[in-house]
Simulated scan of single mutants.
Amino acid sequence: MTSTTVTGVLMLVGLIGIVVPVLPGLFLVWLATGIWAYDHPASSAWVVFVVATVIYAGGLVTQYVIPGRRMRRAGVRTPTLLLAVLLAVVGFFVVPVVGALFGFVLGIYLIELTRQRDRRTAWDSTRHALRAVALSIGIELGAGFAIVLVWVVGLWRLGSGT
């Protein structure tokens, strides 16, 4: 298998890993670009990797900053999210893959219900957190597709290098 094929497969697995959070998806997409640049004979392949690194770093920062601000404005506190993530991990092992989502949602709802003592307010907080998670995944997926696009343009301009 050539490094171009390995890169393409890793990128596909990475993009799937963003949507199905079992693997570090964006990291895999970025890493695949680095493997391709390392193996490519043209030194300008590293330019592709540097651009991918900038996109990766921007995606990492943005995927936490923007949803975090929105959740703070909605009144969802950081400890609530941390406990919900813990319940998501437990849920993942109890019911593989889908248990993580159920554990996260249930965790936020129960914690907010305990904190605010109002079902409607707890559900509103849960909805805000779910929207923030969806936004975070969307940002990460956008960054992943941008890295793939940069790689495809680099591949088109530089060739496969084999």
Rank of each mutant, 00 (worst) to 15 (best):
L130G: 07
G58C: 10
V95M: 08
R157C: 15
V148W: 13
R70P: 07
L135Q: 02
G142T: 04
G58N: 13
A132E: 02
R70W: 08
I66R: 09
G107Q: 08
E112K: 04
W46H: 12
I111N: 14
G25C: 07
A100D: 04
A132Q: 09
A74T: 05
W46M: 15
I111K: 13
I147D: 11
I66K: 12
G25N: 04
A37R: 03
L158Q: 07
G138Y: 00
L31M: 09
Y64F: 09
F93K: 11
V29K: 01
L12R: 13
V20C: 11
V48P: 10
A74R: 08
T62Q: 00
A37G: 02
H128V: 07
P41S: 03
G138F: 00
W123F: 10
V29A: 02
A88S: 09
V94E: 07
F92T: 12
R117D: 15
T162R: 12
M71Y: 00
L158V: 11
L101H: 12
L86Q: 10
A37K: 06
M11P: 10
W151P: 06
A134H: 07
V153W: 08
G91H: 05
E140G: 11
V95H: 07
V19K: 06
V148P: 06
V76T: 02
F49I: 06
W123H: 08
T80I: 02
R157Q: 15
V13W: 04
L12E: 06
V19P: 14
V153Q: 09
V6A: 14
L155K: 14
I55S: 08
F49L: 14
G142D: 06
D118T: 01
V98T: 09
S43Y: 10
I55N: 04
Y56P: 05
T4P: 12
V29D: 04
I139W: 00
L10G: 01
A129W: 04
I18G: 00
V95K: 05
D118V: 03
L83G: 15
T121M: 10
R77A: 15
G14E: 07
R77E: 11
S3G: 15
L158N: 01
